[in-house]
Design a protein around this nucleic acid. Structure first.
Length: 583
DNA sequence: TTTCCCTGCTTACCT
DNA sequence: ACAGGTAAGCAGGGAAAT
């Protein structure tokens, strides 16, 4: 039956593998979906099939999977899609678990308490608990299918655009998707494809980030240039094949600041492909407007539009990537310089119209939302710069911290946008994130810190009696290299070492969950793998002083409160001296 | 001997 | 393993304070 979860009663590897192959042949799917299959399930199955000398018949040819490009396994005649690769494109999902990805995509899961990998063995060993483990895996299997249904249109559209097969395109890094897309277009133009060359990495100056106007501001609009870098590259014909290296002076454009020169005519390669991409996106958007959301083509068009957008936005970065076939430092550097000129001129225009600029980053500006002035501003950007700037959001109230790239705004629909702050960082505890989100809502709604300060003080005073689940205290950090390669001690590395000692395979790219315990010594000596900790072991002082207070203070300091004011009841010196050391 | 301050390593975020 | 710009915590070491 469709969407049926198959379970085997086989009790040996060879029997299980044989049965699995039989089911694949019988079902004969076009797509095979896994979650982390390229790193875990396929290599494992291949190894066990080898060891037991059992044929792993999963391809349409009845053959085994083959290791392919981009760290991916391919099945002959089927598209083997590893949905973890799709999840990597979902920036908002911090910890790429099946459960978190499903939740983000709005997929309902019937089980609320998934079993952590580290508890699998224990569940398997205990016959009563084994049932729960089987149930859990069944739930995950169903979730993977649903995630696949959400991903499939995007995968197919990205494949159609880039020319890479659907199973490869999602495994391929962004640079290789662009590379392949450009190769396709070169072919369409009847031109030759340059070979990839070893290039030294030469850094260059990038975008401008403005100093934010610290504090709470009411009625603020955010505006964004639409496709700023692509638009500038098209406008000034910035491309490797239009770059002038000789003495030409006729019909040329010199980029401000960096002084690279480009021919105005004929159109260069990047102008041609970027124009094509932008036109394709416009066409798709127009078609979407004519299509009812219930129409099956609607999701397909949405996916196509997203794929085109992703590709368009990646071209500038690609041009500055030393591994690109069409690498040109001059091109990337010129686009960046033109971007800086653009934002600077936009700031001048805004100010000349009487608008206040609160903040800006690369291609965005935050100004007071005076509707008439903002419209006039957009008109002037079009007239003076020949570029489009869109009103993307209106905030009833917005808070800028002293730091760049960290702010939060209350939108007109009551939702809060949080940018860069601890609340959106995956390497802070859920506890700290929840506290900061709560503080932000209180502050943005009240426009004063009192309610939030009382809340934080209350929580800090009796954290342990709140009996929060352990998951509130777990901190997740990525291991970016093998544990032995680290130069300095760090809590997540120490926790990883402890896991390795117990036989867990911890490798670069893994997320390590740890909890700070009451043990003595440096912080890294207090860190324990999350699954080994009980709530009795938690160092509550650390979580108050180094998680809750800093996360709350980041916001409340903007309104004049200090960290100390959040810890101490007025006049209580005892608590002040009771703080644990910070760094 | 303890505290303070600076620097480098490290991770994650923003556009 | 698309780009550069930015914040921030912790470790470690030496200088300054006790």
């Amino acid at each position: 039956a469709e969407n049926e979860v198959l379970q085997t009663k086989a009790d040996s590897d060879d029997e299980t593998i044989r049965e699995f192959g039989g089911h694949v042949s019988k079902t004969n799917p076009d797509f095979v979906l896994t979650f982390d299959g390229n790193s875990v399930h396929w290599p494992y199955l291949v190894k066990r099939a080898d060891k037991t000398k059992t044929p792993l018949r999963v391809g349409r040819d009845g053959g085994p999977p083959h290791q392919s490009l981009y760290g991916h396994y391919s099945l002959i005649g089927r598209a083997n899609v590893d949905l973890l690769n799709f999840a990597d494109d979902l920036y908002a999902v911090k910890n790429k678990t099946i459960e978190d990805v499903a939740k983000y995509l709005g997929i309902e899961l019937s089980s609320q308490n998934p079993i952590d990998e580290t508890a699998y063995f224990e569940h398997w060993s205990n016959l009563n608990q084994r049932k729960n483990l089987v149930k859990h895996v069944e739930e995950q299997t169903k979730a993977i299918l649903k995630i696949g249904q959400e991903a499939i249109d995007y995968v197919i559209q990205m494949s159609a655009l880039s020319g890479l097969p659907p199973d490869q395109v999602i495994a391929a890094a962004v640079g290789f998707r662009v590379d392949n897309y450009l190769m396709m277009e070169t072919h369409n133009l009847g031109q030759l494809i340059p070979s990839r060359m070893e290039q030294p990495i030469i850094p260059y100056k990038g975008a401008i980030v403005l100093e934010p106007k610290i504090g709470l501001h009411d009625n603020v609009a955010s505006l964004d240039f639409s496709s700023m870098y692509p638009s500038l590259m098209i406008k000034y014909n910035i491309s490797p094949d239009t770059l002038i290296t000789g003495r030409e002076t006729d019909d040329i454009f010199e980029v401000p600041e960096v002084r690279h020169r480009f021919r105005n005519h004929p159109s260069g390669f990047y102008r041609i492909v970027l124009t094509k991409l932008i036109e394709a996106r416009k066409t798709t958007k127009a078609e979407l407007k004519r299509t009812a959301p219930s129409d099956p083509r609607y999701t397909l068009l949405k996916a196509r539009e997203k794929a085109i957008k992703v590709m368009t936005n990646a071209v500038y970065g690609y041009a500055g990537w030393a591994g690109a076939r069409w690498y040109s430092k001059e091109v990337a550097e010129s686009a960046a310089a033109l971007g800086r000129e653009t934002i600077n001129r936009a700031i001048s225009i805004a100010k000349s119209l009487g608008l206040t600029v609160f903040y800006g980053d690369t291609d965005s500006l935050f100004v007071n939302h005076d509707e008439k002035l903002v419209q006039k501003f957009q008109g002037e950007i079009d007239r003076q710069l020949g570029l489009e700037i869109n009103l993307t959001e209106v905030y009833k109230r917005i808070l800028f911290t002293e730091a760049k790239k960290k702010y939060a705004g209350l939108k007109t629909d009551g939702q809060i946008d949080v940018v860069g702050l601890e609340a959106v960082r995956g390497d802070w505890s859920n506890l700290a994130r929840d506290v900061q989100n709560t503080v932000l809502r209180m502050v943005l709604e009240d426009a004063k810190p009192d309610r939030a300060a009382t809340y934080v003080k209350g929580l800090a005073a009796d954290l342990r009696s709140r009996m929060l689940p352990l998951s509130a205290y777990v901190i997740w950090k990525t291991l970016t290299k093998p544990v032995a390669a680290y130069e300095v001690n760090a809590p997540h590395v120490e926790a990883a070492k402890k896991m390795a000692k117990e036989g867990w395979s911890v490798t670069a790219g893994d997320k390590v969950g740890f909890v700070i315990t009451k043990k003595t010594g440096k912080l890294y000596q207090k860190a324990e793998p999350h699954y080994k900790v009980s709530t009795d072991d938690i160092d509550y002082d650390y979580y108050v002083n180094n998680q809750i207070i800093p996360a709350a203070a980041r916001i409340l300091e903007v309104l004049g409160l200090t960290e100390n004011q959040l810890i101490a009841e007025p006049g209580s010196q005892a608590r002040l001296s009771g703080r644990s050391e910070r760094g």
